[in-house]
């Protein structure tokens, strides 16, 4: 286990297990308002993970918190932790600060804004500024997972110059990480179920047809996870890396969700069983902040114009893993 895992990821996962069990996730569905576990997250200090040290935060790089964001996806955390963490850092780097109890979603143009129903504010792009607006009614979420939309006339609380920030890149990068976490959990649940459920006198996992499906699922989960990790590599979000992350997680989610449900049979779609908590959100996340086709289009456009000899060069220069990259240094650059 790395130091970062021991110091950060393990305690965070333990915290999530305590404060966001499936019952709490279910309780939050269909409600407008900040769920009670938010207080615990505020008290935990993790929300300032990305805020520079001289501004009172932990000064971690984006890369360091990938596992945290993925963990929130794996438990379907019903509050916008990753988004508020990112918003705090983004504003801190520009000399601004969120109101004390602000619970923030990122709201670039999107078919749906996940977790809007649990938020008090949203960051929205407005011309050449990024504005924090107060949220009122966010409307219904057809996925029943606490998503919604941000009214065009939501009152502005503060704003900072946008500079080169593309909020869609931030939001898609975080969403890809959550998707990776949720898909890994789906694989675990599916393998466990296949080993437990007996039909024809044998566990399902002994049937070759099931084995082959779960192998494909594992391939997609691993590939999506690696892409999502690269989407949060380095110190700051990068549009090319995020484009790969959201494309790959979006593509993978189709197959992963389909196989998870196929393996589970009818029990998987029931209210009492946790599988549907994950798969409904994966559908919502796939749609949010640009689907795989949207991001593939952006990625393809960059590749087409790139002055490189081969795609291997392009990947090496733009999409490689950045191990040990600038921990602690300026997420601020984002």
């Amino acid at each position: 286990m790395s130091d970062m895992d021991a110091m950060l990821t393990v305690p965070f996962r333990r915290l999530l297990a305590d404060i966001a069990p499936p019952a709490a996730v279910r309780a939050a569905e269909g409600c407008r308002g900040v769920p009670p576990m938010w207080r615990d997250l505020v008290a935990s200090g993790f929300l300032d993970a990305l805020v520079p040290e001289d501004k009172g935060g932990a000064g971690l790089a984006l890369h360091d918190v990938f596992a945290l964001v993925a963990a929130t996806g794996a438990v379907c955390l019903p509050v916008p932790f990753a988004e508020t963490m990112t918003a705090r850092a983004l504003l801190a780097a520009r000399g601004a600060a969120l109101p004390e109890d602000a619970v923030v979603v990122l709201a670039p143009p999107s078919a749906i804004i996940p977790l809007a129903a649990a938020a008090t504010h949203a960051l929205v792009p407005k011309d050449d500024r990024i504005a924090l607006v107060a949220l009122g009614d966010v409307g219904p979420d057809p996925f029943g997972a606490g998503g919604g939309s941000v009214a065009a006339d939501a009152p502005e609380v503060l704003a900072v110059p946008a500079g080169s920030i593309d909020l869609a890149v931030f939001a898609a990068g975080l969403t890809a990480a959550k998707m990776a976490g949720a898909m890994a959990r789906l694989l675990e649940m599916s393998v466990r179920y296949a080993n437990e459920r007996v039909q024809f006198g044998r566990p399902l996992g002994k049937f070759q047809a099931i084995q082959q499906q779960l192998a494909v699922m594992a391939e997609q989960v691993v590939s999506a996870q690696v892409a999502a990790r690269i989407g949060m590599a380095g110190a700051h979000f990068d549009p090319v890396r995020v484009a790969m992350a959201k494309t790959r997680t979006g593509e993978a989610a189709h197959q992963v969700v389909a196989i998870a449900h196929a393996v589970h049979g009818a029990i998987g779609v029931t209210e009492e069983y946790d599988l549907q908590l994950l798969t409904r959100r994966l559908k919502q996340w796939q749609l949010a902040f640009g689907s795989e086709s949207y991001w593939a289009g952006r990625l393809g456009a960059v590749r087409r114009c790139a002055p490189v000899d081969t795609t291997a060069d392009f990947i090496r220069l733009h999409l490689a893993e950045m191990v040990g990259a600038a921990s602690g240094e300026a997420h601020a650059r984002a």
């Binding site: 086709s293 990947i315 999409l319």
Partner: peptide
């Protein structure tokens, strides 16, 4: 076509990282 290019690059990008691992 650009979208197809992007999808193939995304798959290859993730594979290359796995291959290096």
């Amino acid at each position: 076509d650009i979208e197809l290019l992007g999808r193939l690059v995304a798959r290859l990008g993730s594979l290359r990282a796995m291959s290096i691992a």
